[in-house]
Amino acid sequence: MAAGGFCRLPNGRVVVALNLPSQSAEGSGSVRVLVHAQNRARALTRLRNLGLRAVYLRGNGQPPSPDEVTAVLHHPDGLIWRTAPGADACVGELWHPIRALMRQPAAPR
């Protein structure tokens, strides 16, 4: 389960924003993932198809900001991420394509 929200665009499509726990070796932070899709269900399906099986959107507590909407609309994949707001590393960080998140090595056990 993830905190997040969505906003409906004038053309009927949606942008979904989710805060997910990070699986990187740097720490136990979280990442903010943005998905542009036809509807909320398809946005979550796009994430589940990437291997993020336990992703659900409950409520609309943290909808995407206008800057986040602009960022995801201008990305060719319509699926981007960066360190979640509130983390020190987030200051000045650019958005990354989802491929960069999925190829990060898992934390050593």
Rank of each mutant, 00 (worst) to 15 (best):
G27M: 04
S28I: 07
S28W: 11
G29R: 11
S30M: 04
S30A: 11
S30R: 07
V31S: 02
V31F: 06
V31C: 07
L34K: 00
L34Q: 02
L34S: 05
V35P: 02
V35S: 11
H36S: 09
H36Q: 10
Q38M: 11
Q38V: 12
N39C: 11
N39P: 06
N39E: 13
N39T: 04
N39M: 04
R40H: 12
R40C: 14
R42V: 12
R42N: 15
R42P: 06
A43W: 05
A43L: 04
L44W: 05
L44P: 10
T45Y: 13
T45I: 12
T45V: 13
R46I: 08
L47Y: 06
L47E: 08
R48E: 11
R48S: 08
N49K: 13
L50I: 03
G51E: 07
G51F: 01
G51H: 03
L52Y: 13
L52C: 04
R53Y: 10
A54H: 14
A54G: 07
V55Q: 04
L57G: 00
L57F: 04
R58W: 09
R58H: 10
R58S: 09
N60S: 10
N60L: 09
G61N: 14
G61T: 11
Q62V: 11
P63T: 08
P64S: 05
S65R: 14
S65Y: 09
P66D: 10
P66K: 05
D67L: 14
E68P: 02
E68M: 07
E68A: 09
V69R: 13
V69A: 10
V69Q: 12
V69N: 07
T70S: 12
T70Y: 09
V72R: 05
L73P: 06
L73K: 10
L73E: 09
L73S: 05
H74N: 15
H74C: 10
H74M: 10
H75C: 06
H75E: 11
P76I: 01
P76V: 04
P76G: 02
P76T: 07
D77H: 12
G78A: 05
L79S: 01
I80P: 02
W81G: 01
R82G: 02
R82H: 06
R82S: 05
T83N: 10
A84P: 02
P85Y: 03
P85M: 03
D88G: 04
D88H: 09
D88P: 11
A89V: 15
A89T: 15
C90K: 04
C90I: 00
C90M: 06
C90G: 12
V91G: 01
V91D: 14
V91Y: 13
G92H: 00
G92Q: 00
G92E: 00
E93H: 02
E93I: 00
E93W: 03
E93L: 02
L94I: 05
L94A: 15
L94K: 13
